[in-house]
């Protein structure tokens, strides 16, 4: 019974990681940027929602109306002023830039909010949902539904809209995309905007389900990195499966064995998989030699 509970909880929490990993993968696919700042940005989103809910007594889900556009704009700003000017060695330079952005954000948050742990509050946060003998925190279920909804939106945008077509074209072959008149700069800007806008939503979810402080970002980013490596870089579907898979494993190990080893199991699996398949579970091999 406990194991079943752990599995379902793993799936529920996995939804959040899947959504964040999808954003990470999308950004990576379009512009070869490993958005290392995503952890710090999620925590930033969490703090924004936290401030809004505590000061104005607004429901955390409603706070997203303010935080999401704000963070989307931040993403576009980062693209225009920090990423676009990079000319050489893009993969490494942009990763280091995002690393620096993460450090900057962490420092700012630490000053603004001190290092004490906080959690976003809502009246229903301690309610839970009973199904048979199982008991799930309501907030987990709501978060999962929100994540699933956003993931479907993301899917529709990428596969059913004109922007999505430009986006996929830029992912597959940026040079050719530019040749057929796609403004890849604009696509990149919007993609990073979306990727970071999602962090606002992710932050709210993270902040309602966990107590956090400025350095929680490392917890998030370390897990997300494992998930995207496992999923095979650039494969959104892979990231989804890997996210759910990993979180379920972690929760089951935590229940069966000990919570301490839950996250260790997470990393052990990564190592084992990479020994067998260096390109990750769903990744493709490199390009051909001409």
């Amino acid at each position: 019974m406990l194991v079943l509970q752990a599995i379902i909880e793993g799936v529920l929490v996995g939804g959040f990681y899947a959504l964040m990993a999808a954003g990470l993968t999308l950004v990576f696919g379009v512009m070869d940027i490993v958005n290392f700042a995503i952890g710090a940005l999620i925590v930033l989103g969490a703090y924004l929602s936290y401030s809004i809910t505590t000061h104005f007594h607004i429901d955390p889900f409603v706070s997203l109306i303010f935080t999401t556009p704000l963070m989307t704009a931040l993403g576009m700003f980062i693209y225009v002023f920090l990423i676009k000017p990079i000319k050489t060695n893009k993969v490494v330079m942009s990763l280091l830039t995002m690393f620096a952005v993460a450090t900057l954000i962490e420092g700012i948050l630490d000053i603004c909010y001190n290092s004490g742990f906080v959690q976003i509050h809502a009246s229903y946060i301690n309610n839970s949902l009973r199904i048979g003998k199982l008991n799930f925190p309501l907030i987990y279920v709501l978060s999962f539904l929100l994540s699933a909804f956003l993931l479907s939106c993301l899917y529709l945008v990428t596969y059913r809209t004109k922007f999505g077509r430009s986006l996929r074209a830029s992912m597959q072959n940026p040079v050719a995309a530019r040749l057929v008149g796609i403004d890849t700069d604009r696509v990149s800007m919007i993609t990073l905007g979306i990727g970071i806008g999602l962090a606002a939503i992710g932050g709210m979810i993270f902040g309602t389900t966990n107590a956090f402080n400025a350095s929680s970002s490392y917890d998030i980013i370390s897990r997300l990195l494992v998930i995207v490596i496992l999923g095979g870089f650039g494969s959104v579907g892979g990231a989804l499966v890997a996210a759910i898979f990993m979180l379920v494993i972690q929760d089951v190990v935590a229940v069966v064995w000990s919570p301490v080893w839950g996250s260790t199991a997470f990393y052990m699996i990564l190592m084992l998989v990479l020994l067998v398949r260096p390109q990750g579970l769903f990744g493709k091999k490199g390009v051909r030699a001409q």
Partner: peptide, 23 residues
Amino acid sequence: GGANVFLIVYGALFILILRLLPG
């Protein structure tokens, strides 16, 4: 003193270096 100001200065410095002196 505080580690947080240090982080900010450090992050900003790095961004500056990457921008001005990429090589």
